[in-house]
Amino acid sequence: AVPASSQSALQSLDSNAPVDVAADRIEVQDRADRAIFSGNVQVRQGNLSLDAARITVAYSGGIAGSGPQVQRLDASGGVHIQSPSESARGQFAVYDLNRRLITLIGGVELNQGGNVIRGGRLVIDLNSGRAVIDGRSQGGDGITTQGNASGRVTGRFTVPQRNN
C-alpha cells in the first residue's frame, strides 16, 4: 500500500546547504546582490531540485568575507519542483530561504504518492513539512495568476487496495 503521507521529505532540507545552479546563461550583478539564470535552469539544494526557464537569486554578504547567503529564489516559466516525496508544477515559484517556505502559484499540480491535486497555489512549509494547496491564485506577495476559474481545489486520490 502506498503511504499517502502529507509529510514532505523537504522538511529535512537545510537552507544553508550549498546551492548548485546550472543554466544556459548566468548574469551575476554583484552591485545589486542578484544573479539571474536563464535558459533551462536547474537548481539543486540537498534533496530539492527546482527547474524553471528563468530564476533570479537574491543574496547578501559575500564580500564581507563571511560568505554569501541566499535570501530568496524567484523562478518563472514552467516551474518543476522535485523532492523524494513529491513533485509539483506551476508557473511561478518563490523559495524563501529565510522563512523556509516554497510557494508555487499559477495552475499548480501537486503529485504526491500517486495522488494528484490541482489548485491555484501550493505552499510547502519546510519547517513543518506540510504542503498546503488552496484555490486562491494569489502569491504570497501579491503575484496573481489566473488559476482555474472556479478557484476550487480538485484532486484525484488513489485508494490503497483493501485485500480483506
Partner: peptide
C-alpha cells in the same frame, strides 16, 4: 566597473553559503 559577470554556454555556479542563518 559594474562587476557584472556574464556566463554563457553550460554555465554552472556553486554557491557555498555561510552558516549564519
Amino acid at each position: 566597473p559594474t562587476r557584472t559577470i556574464y556566463l554563457e554556454g553550460r554555465a554552472r555556479l556553486r554557491i557555498e553559503q555561510s552558516q549564519g542563518r
